[in-house]
Design a protein around this nucleic acid. Structure first.
Lengths: 172, 172
DNA sequence: GACACTGTACTCGGATACGGATTGTCCGAGTCTAAACGG
DNA sequence: CCGTTTAGACTCGGACAATCCGTATCCGAGTACAGTGTC
């Protein structure tokens, strides 16, 4: 029962990318600097998000990452599953049939009740995560967080997003 | 997002122990044999359940394990937390304040919104697990599972529970 | 014959190695930019 | 002066080690039972 710490980085990066203009990108190195992470390692997780069609990556000097679809259509569940894998946390090893009392497979057509209960709990977990849209996260951050933190974050994305839209509106 | 396989073993053992008489016990070796597990390793998890006051252990030739309280008052959450640890799966590393823009701590009095969302999901997970009582698991097993499996299980506990209540009622 | 003592066998409990997964890092493939050269 | 070429630098992407946690195992502490000797 432990999530890798890459999940936190992935969500933070996705939230930051939700604040850039439609086509602009932010490089992985910039985001690594923003959160004090190892650039090479952060790329690994961003890569998984790209493979899951959550982010788009563009190469080249002006390259970087951007959201593959609007933040309203990205949930925390998408990110968590992309980074941690889609298989459930509880994997029933069917140890009930490993004992000395060997019955044939017809006795185990029904799922293990323990497995059912655990999977039900995990469905609740995923449902709660599926209701948390990325747009809600950033909206809540904009209104609730400390204004200094919001200003610093917006300034950071405005400074690092490329191509630099100096004439466009500085949104967060 | 992965649970150790010891959780499955712990729940199965607890369910088996729910079927013994009030004071009778089953040895760890017997349960390891019942599920085809390594005896020495199963002891480790049973030990954690004992430390969490879910099981009681008695030493000696007629020793073993038994439930510390009625199965109605034991939930899957208790077992999972005892084996996997009580700390939440998502641990916020506060990477938001690791960046180059260093604000003082007063800017971070509010919890990270991402952390809030993840903890909310985990509360849902634990709530679902807290509603699954061990007595429900065994009751469902008695009624729904294959009769051959139920009979074999009851025979196993009747054969291995100690002190052997040969004259008492052979319940499951 | 009954009681107390001692030895034994069986149990749990904690300390000790091993393997795999996660974490962290490096170098190569691809691409856009920008300068330099020629017309 | 303008178009083309070419070199450069910056980006992502995958392949390669180090470290930590989960897995597996062994040996020691403790206890109830059984046998034996004595009263």
């Amino acid at each position: 029962m432990k999530l890798g710490e890459g999940v936190e980085a992935a969500i933070h990066c996705a939230a930051m990318l939700a604040g850039v203009d439609g086509d602009a990108t932010i490089s992985g190195a910039a985001m690594a600097e923003a959160f004090g992470l190892s650039p090479s390692y952060l790329l690994k997780h961003l890569n998984m998000l790209s493979a899951a069609r959550i982010l788009e990556s563009v190469s080249g000097p002006a390259g970087g990452y951007r959201l593959a679809r609007p933040a309203e259509r990205i949930t925390l569940l998408d990110i968590v599953l992309a980074v941690e894998g889609r298989e459930p946390a509880f994997r029933c090893g069917e140890i009930r049939r490993n004992g000395p009392v060997r019955l044939d497979a017809s006795a185990y057509v029904k799922l293990c009740g323990i497995n059912v209960a655990m999977l039900k709990a995990e469905r609740a977990y995923r449902a709660a995560l599926a209701e948390a849209k990325l747009s809600d996260i950033v909206a809540e951050y904009m209104t609730d967080a400390d204004p200094r933190s919001v200003a610093a974050g917006c300034a950071f994305v405005a400074r690092h997003q490329r191509p630099r839209k100096s004439s466009s509106t500085k949104q967060a």
